[in-house]
Amino acid sequence: MTVIELRDLAHDVTNNLLTGFPSAKLDEAIRAVTGADGLIAVTPIFTTSYSGLFKSFIDILDPQSLADLPVLLGATGGTDRHSLSIDYTLRPLFTYLHAVAVPTGVYAASADWGGGGESGSSTLPTRIARAAGELAALVAVSDRSDRVIDPFALPEGFSPSGSFRA
């Protein structure tokens, strides 16, 4: 398991957005995410959406690199009022990238930490366990580990003569 803290890569992400080239440390993080069998993507919620650093990291990924990747979506925030942010910001983002998001998103509000764990209809540990089980089931049937993605591969049907076969 690899944990990537984006705050440690903030300058690298910004430099990549400006130059188009990742640092060695950022390249390692990108390869870890795009080569994973499953992903747990968690962001703090700011003004009802994911953080700018989170989105900037997603923006530097190849748009096809997360296709068919099982993803557990998670977020943290100050109040339960933003718990739907997973469904109206994160889920559409990962759907656009053709990732496979598990049905249960995990949102943790301040009330989940030390307040008895009661938030909504279930406790945080219960939501985490349910989402983790869904992620494990998707990873078990995923064929991502069988694929090799070559960023320099020629498109299918490419002909050396410069034309494409139909």
Rank of each mutant, 00 (worst) to 15 (best):
D37K: 08
D37F: 00
D37P: 01
D37G: 06
D37C: 01
D37L: 01
D37A: 06
D37I: 01
D37Y: 01
G38L: 06
G38P: 04
G38M: 05
G38I: 06
G38H: 09
L39P: 11
L39G: 11
L39N: 12
I40A: 04
I40M: 05
A41C: 09
A41T: 06
A41W: 06
A41N: 05
A41F: 13
A41R: 03
V42E: 10
V42T: 11
V42R: 02
V42C: 11
V42L: 09
V42P: 02
V42D: 04
T43W: 06
T43L: 03
P44A: 13
P44F: 07
P44Q: 14
I45P: 00
I45W: 02
I45C: 01
T47N: 14
T47S: 14
T47E: 10
T47C: 11
T47K: 15
T48Q: 15
T48L: 15
T48Y: 15
T48S: 15
T48G: 14
S49K: 15
S49T: 15
Y50M: 14
Y50E: 14
Y50N: 12
Y50I: 07
Y50W: 14
Y50L: 12
Y50F: 14
S51P: 09
S51A: 12
S51H: 06
S51Y: 03
S51K: 03
S51V: 04
G52E: 04
G52C: 07
G52Q: 13
L53H: 07
L53P: 07
L53E: 03
L53M: 13
L53Q: 07
F54S: 00
F54M: 03
F54I: 00
K55R: 08
K55G: 07
K55H: 04
K55W: 09
K55Q: 11
S56L: 14
S56H: 15
S56D: 11
S56V: 10
S56C: 15
S56Q: 15
F57D: 10
F57P: 02
F57A: 03
I58R: 02
I58Q: 05
I58K: 00
I58T: 05
I58H: 04
D59C: 12
D59G: 14
D59W: 13
D59M: 12
I60V: 11
I60D: 07
I60F: 08
I60P: 08
L61C: 08
L61I: 04
L61R: 15
L61A: 10
L61Y: 01
L61W: 00
D62L: 03
D62E: 11
D62Y: 06
P63Q: 08
P63Y: 10
P63G: 05
P63H: 10
Q64R: 06
Q64V: 08
Q64F: 09
Q64C: 02
Q64P: 01
S65F: 01
S65Q: 02
S65M: 01
S65P: 01
L66S: 04
L66W: 01
L66M: 08
L66V: 04
A67P: 03
A67F: 12
A67L: 08
D68H: 04
D68K: 09
D68A: 04
D68L: 07
D68R: 08
L69V: 07
L69M: 14
L69E: 10
L69T: 09
L69I: 09
L69A: 05
L69S: 05
L69W: 02
L69R: 08
P70N: 10
P70K: 10
P70Y: 14
P70T: 12
P70E: 13
P70S: 13
P70Q: 13
